[in-house]
Design a protein around this nucleic acid. Structure first.
Lengths: 228, 228
DNA sequence: TATAATAAATGTATTTTTTACATTTATTGT
DNA sequence: ACAATAAATGTAAAAAATACATTTATTATA
């Protein structure tokens, strides 16, 4: 590192790319800005990082502020630092992608914040480089989904195999064979069949399963490959 | 983002985790600091990012300054931003990992900078969180190597199949069967056999190959999986 | 209460990929 | 001429991926 130059100090921001899954579609949470700059424009949720917190502290702080959620699956995507990326400040942003479960409690908070879910295939224009961040995050989760079972982060605690399949089809943007999909998922031996059925989408109903986090951890530590 | 608070401005640094491959070993480039802070300690190469450049501009700038190299394979690893990571400044660092070819020209510059290559299995203590960065980068390239042919970035333009195998063995930290390795690599159809042999390591000599970047690009765009 | 409708659940044969494993070959130095 | 060295090669067996069609459980309705 070079000599101390006060002029070379930056604002550091975080922006959160929050994905959910509903009605068989992958969705992005977008906020309608109530304050300037960019009042009334659409954006990801973001904040400046405070001097007394880390980047991940900041992203947890605003995620909770905007959604009420804690302990969310959130990872760093990358930094965005073009000199001209923000006309207001010289600011670098560390983008974070998050995967959350959409359910009633969160829907209320989302409404209070004048936020909306958009299907990722039909995104509106967002401020600054937020569309680019979203595109980059989508590519990242598509890649990640090939060898990590991130799908479970987007589904409710209890889910059916057809729901899980629909999620993977949305991420990969192609259809999968239901027999082969089921065989593959069950072969990982990380989902537990429950005695309940979900009958919202068929008369027969589909058995509910839950993710076995402990078993997954152990398999992952032993280098197991969860490629779907 | 919140309201403008001059006190929430940060120094932003880049640190480069530079890997090379020599004598069948994966190595890290480490610098002996000639100036304070941390004079005479070992560290990655790093610099503050200047207000008029992006993070990637800064990392290219210092990589060229310390090694003379341009157009190097370099990717962002992640940011390090703990409040107490640097006792001198409130500074976040964006770590970048780079893969370079070790040859004569670079060896000279490395010596002039009082830098050294260390085998990654035998690293000395580095300043601040630089050992953590290195560990994280090693995990990343191990993961990346499974589906991207990054090995070619670390070898000379012309290389033999046994050399390529030794590199993958170093990255994965296990031995590979030479027949199966050769079969797999050739099946990708992205290396071109030359009419020359390298006789430095055997009397028979091993045929030299070069990487077919164009073909690789095309296959990658069509979603081809280079898993080794 | 029989029937129609719906999506869930299931099995197998074929192809492809991965793995395991030992011998021959080209060249150099003695 | 021969010894030494690492490179190059092939095949059989096992495992994984793929392609594909029928039966099942349940509800709503005739």
């Amino acid at each position: 590192m070079n000599s101390y130059q006060e002029k070379d100090k930056f604002y550091v921001a975080v922006d959160c790319i929050i994905f959910g899954f509903e009605d068989g579609k992958l969705k992005l949470l977008v906020f309608n800005r109530k304050i300037n700059p960019f009042k009334d424009s659409l954006s990801l949720i973001g904040s400046f990082v405070k001097i007394g917190e880390s980047v991940s502290d900041a992203s947890k702080r605003i995620l909770e502020e905007f959604t009420g959620l804690r302990n969310v699956y959130m990872k760093e995507l990358k930094t965005y630092s073009s000199v001209d990326r923000d006309p207001g400040y010289r600011c670098i942003s560390v983008a974070q992608y998050a995967l959350i479960r959409i359910h009633k409690s969160i829907k209320k908070i989302v409404e209070q914040n004048e936020a909306q879910w958009f299907e990722v295939q039909e995104l509106p224009a967002l401020i600054l480089d937020h569309n680019q961040m979203t595109t980059d995050a989508l590519r990242r989760i598509e890649e990640l989904a090939r060898y990590r079972p991130i799908g479970f982060e987007l589904l409710p605690e209890k889910f059916t195999i057809p729901q899980l399949q629909a999620l993977y089809e949305a991420i990969y943007r192609r259809t999968l064979d239901p027999r082969n999909f089921r065989k593959k998922i069950l072969s990982f031996d990380v989902i537990i069949k429950l005695d309940e059925k979900d009958k919202t989408s068929s008369k027969k109903g589909a058995f509910l399963y839950k993710f076995d986090r402990d078993k997954y951890q152990k398999l992952q530590e032993s280098g197991y490959n969860f490629e779907i």
